[in-house]
Each structure stands twice: as structure tokens, then as C-alpha cells.
Design a protein around this nucleic acid. Structure first.
Length: 147
DNA sequence: GCCAACGTTGGC
DNA sequence: GCCAACGTTGGC
């Protein structure tokens, strides 16, 4: 199972909004970058990801799951290449993991969040997934860690 | 096809 | 509010 990280400005779309959307979830839209789009296309139903608040908060706050694989973005014309996936909230982190905390952890220095900070949808490795879950106070297995 | 100008993102 | 990173645009 692959893992991902989704960045959102809480003013636009927050973790609370994602939780409020319930088990049916919502589509993750707004991606207008080809690298991020490729990541969306690679996602499989059941993949888990981190939900990160950018700008305000700057921390990983929860776990989400892909419930529908990529399909054309309903918000743009059919001739546009952009896609969305559906995701739902799974569980919050007990302790949010802040950007500063990640920066202070040498084992996370290779995270996409460090190297490509502007990319809105990023891959997360299994090792990074387990570590961030542990730092957030939750069991990586329950969060959808390595199978 | 190169590259300067410009816009956007997001940390600080 | 500033600025670095980086993607996109457009002139040549």
C-alpha cells in the first residue's frame, strides 16, 4: 500500500471539514500541478495518507483514506487535464506533528515535505509513515501502515 | 528551444 | 509582509 500527504490551507479546506464530510468523504480538488496530478493518478482505493495544514498550523493533523481512484475534475471543462480523488477522514493524530518537529528529525530529512515543500500532493515512504504515526501517538498498523 | 519576466505557494 | 522556490508564459 502506498502512502501520501495532502496539503491544504485550513481556511480553504480543513481537517474539521474533512471529518464533517463523514464516511462518504469528498473529492480532493484544486490540484493544478502536473507532479501532484501524477501522484493522484497513482493512488489506489484504500491507500492512506496524512492530512497536513499549510500556512496556518503547519502540522500533520490526521489520516485519510482514498475511497475513489482518480477521475476527471468535475469543476473544470472536459478538455482540461485535471483529476481528483475521493478521500475520507479515518482518524486524527493524538498529537499533531508539526513542520518544526519534522525538521528536527534527521530520519525525516528526505521527506518530500522537506525537499519539495510546494508540492500539494506528495508520496510518503513506508518508513516515514511509520515514524510520523509513532510521533503522532498512534499505531501505524491501525493507521494503515505497512501491510 | 532558450531564458527573462511574472505569478503562486508557503515558510518565516 | 518578505522572499525563496519553482512552474508557466511569451518574446526572440
Amino acid at each position: 500500500m502506498a502512502h501520501w500527504l495532502y496539503k491544504s490551507e485550513p481556511f480553504k479546506w480543513s481537517w474539521d471539514a474533512q471529518v464533517a464530510a463523514g464516511p462518504k468523504g469528498t473529492f480532493w480538488d484544486g490540484v493544478r500541478n502536473h507532479a501532484a496530478k501524477l501522484n493522484l493518478i497513482r493512488m489506489k482505493a484504500g491507500d492512506r495518507g496524512f492530512f497536513y495544514h499549510s500556512n496556518e498550523g503547519k502540522e500533520i493533523v490526521g489520516i485519510v483514506e482514498v475511497i475513489r481512484e482518480s477521475y476527471p475534475d468535475p469543476g473544470v471543462g472536459a478538455d482540461e487535464p485535471w483529476v481528483v480523488v475521493d478521500i475520507k477522514a479515518v482518524m486524527p493524530l493524538k498529537t499533531p506533528v508539526s513542520l518544526a518537529t519534522i525538521k528536527g528529525e534527521p530520519r525525516l530529512s528526505e521527506m518530500a515535505l522537506m525537499k519539495y515543500s510546494r508540492l500539494s500532493v506528495q508520496p510518503v515512504t513506508d518508513a516515514e509513515w511509520d515514524l510520523v504515526c509513532a510521533m503522532g501517538g498512534i499505531d501505524p498498523k491501525k493507521a494503515g501502515g505497512k501491510s
